[in-house]
Amino acid sequence: MYITASSTISFQPTFRNKGFSDEISELNDESEILHPDYTDFIPKMKRRRMTDVLKMGITCAMDCLKQIDLEQPDSIIVGTSMGCNIFTKRFLDKINSSKGGLLSPTSFIVSTHNTIAGQISLLLSNHNYNMTHTQNSLSFEQALMDGMLCILEGGENILVGSSDENERELYNMVTRLNNKTLLSTYGASFFILSKEKKEKDNIKLVEAESFGLVEDRPKILTQFLNSNKTSVNDIDLVLYSNSVPETVNELIDIFPSKKLYDFQKITGTYLTNSGFAMNYGVDILTKGNHPSFEKNINRVLIYNNLIPENLGLILIEKNSD
């Protein structure tokens, strides 16, 4: 199956900017989210009441549909670690300040994790499969796996993505990490998975898997590559995330270090940043080259090990048909 559209809102000039992988640089403490002009994507009245997680997610979703001129996806699948956290806190604040008085339900009704996917269906009047996966750092991978299932089940075009909002000062605790060097960011990334390719250079999604509560990561990686008939040499670039040094030590034992790149340098850290990493991989593969990496990149592995015991693996490759 193919990735026929992709869209990311992030701290980098990724949105509606094909070929962005050459232009972006490593983030620093001064980096800020680059919000696009949302007016083209979400009606004003609706937008006014939306928090970032909704605006970013919906906009990336709509952008993907525009890219391939698709009216209705066969499924809408979202991965989000914390969902509509800001609305949740807003309603908690209201409860705490109301002292038993009447409450407005406004923030309550949009605080469920599936509000992002639900709002996309509402804007599109889409009556199809609509799902939300919330497995902290593996939420995106599980959404992607679900999208792959939808294609296997006969779907033609599946909208899959992830969105998470600002948790800046909180991420260390949220992710059970204690790594002060990580830069907390947020963002959204959406894709369309299609059974058939739309353009000659569409990238293939070979496989996505999520593994929870793992102990032996190298063993899982080896099994993953074997089951996809891929050798270590076939992988031209490994985009990885981590919060403990063991992750990198294990990868260096398997891959030459020049093939390894810590994608958090460009995505920053949030629980669904592997969505951005996949788009980065897609962008590099589409061009086939990147000045910082080996020449002729044909196959990219996204190795998400942000939470040490959770491992997400995504394999994408250049279409050789």
Binding site: H133, Q135, N136, G212, L213
Partner: peptide, 22 residues
């Protein structure tokens, strides 16, 4: 996801551990 992981751990399960929230 954390609430799910504690249950999985208690049962000794690992691998596909997922949470759905709709």
């Amino acid at each position: 996801g954390g609430t799910t992981e504690v249950i999985a751990k208690e049962l000794g399960l690992s691998g596909y551990i997922g949470t759905i929230s709709t």
